[in-house]
């Protein structure tokens, strides 16, 4: 047996956490929202989810192959991106448009910048924004919940935020349960909160970003004279705060940075909702804050143990 021992650097133990297990936890956390999507918006949302997951995974595989890099499909991050993108789409969307979104997310945003861990903006959010700008009509044609049960033709409705700007309010219970128009995965606050609690309990995410994001939206919309409860329950706040703003790669690492990031996302969201022409601002707020992450990280570096405060350079 001599001379055949493995010699490797310490530590010789691992916590057992793997990228794949983390991604699997995110997928599990998105199951309630996905189920809610299918309940409210029918088989078409199921198809969207399937199309997005399949194309993201396939695109990831092809990209790595073309770039002659190690296959990373097994880490399931492409599945998470596909699922998140699908949940950010309206139910009636042409699947080909969804596939285009997947190309933006995986090929342009993720793989062209080096793959997992190297993208500087969130792939799913960016894809959603590209689609929103490229296909403004299709991306804002919302179907009413449960219409798929009643008739073969789709009946369009409006999102609670659009309704509000027309002066119609939506009940809190409908908002909480998701019985409103909107992207298939964003309407059911209950399902998203369940997923969020799961992620925090599994220590996959820290609760700081979601709490700061949702909390600041609540406070700020109240201060600006809006209905705070309505604002946190409507639109993409829950989905964005719990699942998109907490993306590891595009959010700050340490707690102080997370606080700034969460508050920043909320401020931009509320400003867009109250003062811009767009009804919804969650996606834009997150992508803008994504871009600021390197600066936030620079500002909030932790002080190494026993390090003397460095004198300001003259």
């Amino acid at each position: 047996m001599e001379n055949m021992l493995t010699v490797s650097s310490s530590p010789h133990l691992s916590s057992g956490a793997t990228t794949r297990k983390i991604m699997l936890d995110v997928i599990i956390a998105l199951v309630p929202a996905s189920v809610a999507a299918v309940i409210f918006f029918g088989w078409k949302s199921l198809m969207l989810i399937a199309v997005c997951i399949a194309s993201c995974t396939a695109l990831e595989y092809i990209c790595r192959k073309v770039m002659k890099r190690k296959n990373t499909v097994g880490d399931l991050s492409a599945v998470v991106t596909g699922l998140l993108l699908a949940l950010n789409l309206p139910s009636g969307l042409n699947p080909l448009i969804a596939v285009f979104g997947c190309v933006v997310a995986i090929v342009v945003v993720k793989q062209m910048f080096g793959g997992i861990g190297n993208n500087f903006v969130n792939p799913a959010i960016t894809a959603r924004i590209v689609l929103l700008v490229s296909f403004p009509v299709q991306m804002t044609t919302w179907e009413k919940p449960f219409e798929w049960l009643k008739t073969a033709d789709s009946v369009t409705g409006a999102t609670p935020l659009a309704l509000m700007s027309q002066g119609t309010s939506t009940g809190y219970m409908d908002l909480f349960l998701g019985n409103t128009g909107g992207c298939i995965g964003e309407t059911c606050a209950l399902a998203l909160l369940l997923g969020g609690i799961y992620l925090v309990a599994r220590k996959v995410i820290s609760p700081i970003i979601p709490l700061c994001f949702i909390g600041t939206v609540f406070v700020l919309s109240f201060l600006l004279g809006g209905d705070p409860l309505f604002h946190i329950l409507s639109g993409g706040v829950m989905l964005g705060a719990i699942f998109m703003a907490t993306d590891y790669t595009t959010s700050p690492m340490n707690p102080a940075g997370k606080v700034i990031f969460g508050i920043g996302c909320a401020v931009i969201t509320v400003l867009i909702r109250f003062y811009a022409n767009l009804p919804e601002g969650v996606s834009f707020s997150i992508i803008l804050m994504n871009i600021l992450v390197p600066h936030i990280e620079n500002l909030t570096r932790t002080k190494p143990f026993g390090k003397e405060k460095k004198n300001e350079k003259a």
Binding site: T19, K70, D75, N118
Partner: peptide
């Protein structure tokens, strides 16, 4: 595998 910047 690649760093995912999870911050652990």
């Amino acid at each position: 595998s690649d760093c995912i910047r999870c911050g652990r």
